[in-house]
Amino acid sequence: MPKTQTKSTKPEGITVKPGSSKEYKTGSWRSKKPIFKHDKCNDCRICVMVCPDGVIFGEDKKYWADMDFCKGCGICAEECPVKDIDMELEVR
């Protein structure tokens, strides 16, 4: 360590942890929310694929969105081939 320095000058604040954006909740952006009706779902998993934020989870015809992050874009509902997802107004 340089003699004249008392504190470290090592690189800091240069890199961040992978995947740490999970600490940043985007759910509050939402004005509409997806409702997974778990009725006609045929397990195609298209909703899981097309969510830009990657926040749809589940299996065996039971899918759900992580509402901490869902931005309410409505792509999942639009792309669901059996219309098993509805978009509803978000009331807070």
């Binding site: 992978p18 999970k22 985007t26 952006w29 934020d53 990657g54 931005k71």
Partner: peptide, 11 residues
């Protein structure tokens, strides 16, 4: 690519 990114809805 983890959620919590700040792209517009539907990006």
């Amino acid at each position: 690519v983890a959620p919590g990114h700040r792209a517009c809805a539907g990006c």
